[in-house]
Design a protein around this nucleic acid. Structure first.
Lengths: 210, 210
DNA sequence: GATATTCGGAAGAATCTCTTCCGCTTATGC
DNA sequence: GCATAAGCGGAAGAGATTCTTCCGAATATC
């Protein structure tokens, strides 16, 4: 696939990128079963163009996941390297909400996408790296004393996946609602929280798509 | 509708109840667009029976919502009356997760269900009472000093709706995951939380289906 | 035991989505 | 500029899914 991209005509290349971007949005808004025609519409492209580039939905899901996981991983690594504390890095990661929403949808929420991606070694590798990075950040934040010690990276991933879902409000207040829910969740993750959590911490290995 | 129920034959009455229960489960698992046949299957009833009792999907959604909202309202009032503090009442309400999940799905999450219910005055009345009860509990908990003062009942409802969604894990660990997420969310709502929330509290009037 | 009511599920109708195909358009290299 | 290979759009047929009706068999009720 990589080799053929260089031979793509400029307009084709442009359309390919538009399709991947539009598919990501459509997947995170409506799930990965969104009609192909809706994706084409969002990309301002004909369905024919979509099918020429991606022979079927699975290929498209794989391409979107690969691109998106990669970017989120890069974001997370940059955050870990540049922010003064691991807690700040975590906050920054979950603030990149648009990209992360696609990741969460494909890697955690949708059964179908998980099924497809579990058979794609390339995506699996990036996903593992991403989980490792998250684990590192969580453990550092706990070592700093900023995060409560009784949660695992799996707990954090699940909370992200919950908070990042489309909230049940009008579009214009979605941003405010998200910001508030995110802040409340982060406060719940802080050290010094009142309660003790039931059960053992959830590790990343317990998440689906291992 | 109420009058005809008394004239229903015993087996018909039984099936009607099974259908409502099964539809609630199906709606909260798969959303309100779940195939009618799937609902019939869960109720162990033929599709014919389903259509005889509920002429179309909308009638079924209305019936499920009415029954479910009513029960949740009763639960909430009982909790407010019986628990020693408003905070305890809130914890108890969100612990009745199975029922509440249906409520949240129909009243907040699903566009289609909201649309249908917004045209049904009977359901709307129960919903308003439910929101009033939630507002009372939240304000009491804040007066007690147990809950942070910078959240509104709308924030709480939205957080419930997020936590109550199907978490992305295998069925057997879903209960543990839910319990932990719920506890973390509640800790984020406690008084003395570290951060100050951005924006104004979200009131129930800002939720959809006003 | 008679009978009015209800049940179950097969099957035709209706709808939605996928996918292909081809005449037209556009980028590229000379 | 121009030739040409590559790409484009979207109509339309195929296929799948879901809805809804209908009627012979089963069952509650009197």
């Amino acid at each position: 696939m990589t080799e053929s991209q260089t031979r793509l005509r400029a307009d084709a290349r442009r359309n390919r990128d538009r399709i991947i971007a539009a598919a990501g949005e459509a997947f995170s808004d409506q799930g990965p079963d969104v009609p192909m025609e809706e994706i084409a519409r969002r990309a301002e492209v004909g369905v024919g163009t979509l099918y020429r580039r991606f022979p079927d939905r699975e290929a498209l899901i794989r391409a979107v996941a690969q691109e998106n996981f990669r970017r989120v991983l890069d974001d997370a690594r940059a955050a870990a390297a540049e922010e003064p504390t691991a807690w700040d890095a975590l906050v920054r990661v979950v603030d990149r909400s648009h990209r992360l929403r696609v990741t969460v949808q494909l890697a955690l929420v949708s059964d179908r996408a998980r099924q497809i991606l579990s058979e794609d070694p390339r995506t699996g590798g990036i996903r593992s790296e991403l989980m490792d990075e998250l684990t590192r950040i969580v453990e550092s934040a706990q070592a700093e004393g900023a995060m409560r010690p009784d949660v695992g990276a799996g707990d954090v991933a699940i909370l992200f996946s919950l908070v990042l879902r489309q909230p049940p409000v009008a579009r214009e207040s979605a941003a405010r609602v998200f910001d508030r829910a995110r802040a409340i969740m982060l406060d719940g993750l802080r050290a010094g929280a009142a309660g003790v959590l039931p059960g053992d911490p959830i590790r990343t290995g317990e998440l689906p798509l291992r």
